[in-house]
């Protein structure tokens, strides 16, 4: 297989950069970004909600 390797670019992780997000505002970023980060550590954690399919629109 021929593979072209890019030595100048970078590859982004699912880990969000929370270093400069004040803890007091971390809730601001909600479960979505935190969930994406925590999934890297605990893919099967019940604290990490995973929705693989379209969720019913007319109900909470």
């Amino acid at each position: 297989m021929n593979t072209t390797e890019d030595t100048s670019a970078q590859i982004a992780s699912e880990v969000r950069d929370l270093q400069h997000v004040p803890l007091a505002q971390m809730k601001t970023y909600g479960d979505v970004e935190l969930g994406a980060t925590l999934r890297r550590l605990m893919p099967a954690s019940p604290d990490v909600a995973r929705v693989a399919v379209a969720a019913f629109n007319s109900s909470i």
Partner: peptide, 8 residues
């Protein structure tokens, strides 16, 4: 929030 990245 931006994501962490590593240059190749």
């Amino acid at each position: 929030v931006r994501a962490h990245a590593l240059p190749y």
